[in-house]
């Protein structure tokens, strides 16, 4: 069986796949929670600065990952 499956490559796909494939959605979810959880807004209905900043960081990181992915496709990573 070990001749038929490239375990090294497969292991890397699973490991990095979990980090990226599950990590990015989780990061996005953190961003969503920052702006939209029930206690997100103060009594004047505004988002506190720290929530805005963390949401920006989370969404920004996701956007950066998308740009990196497009660059990887263009660079012939395929």
């Amino acid at each position: 069986m070990s001749n038929y499956v490239e375990w090294d490559a497969l292991g890397q796909v699973i490991l990095v796949g979990l980090v990226v494939g599950a990590g990015l959605p989780a990061l996005f979810a953190v961003g969503v929670r920052m702006v939209a959880s029930p206690d997100a807004r103060d009594e004047r209905g505004e988002l506190p600065m720290w929530r805005k900043a963390s949401a920006g960081a989370a969404f920004g990181a996701v956007a950066l990952a998308i740009v990196a992915a497009v660059a990887a496709i263009a660079a012939g990573g395929h």
Binding site: E6, A9, L10, Q12, V13, V16, G17, V20, G21, A22, L24, P25, F28, A29, A69, A72, I73, G77, H78
Partner: peptide, 22 residues
Amino acid sequence: RQGMAAETSSAAVIMLSSHFGY
């Protein structure tokens, strides 16, 4: 939420599998 999680997983696994040659 599921749609987003599913498509991100797909994109990640598809690209990584080509990247790592599997």
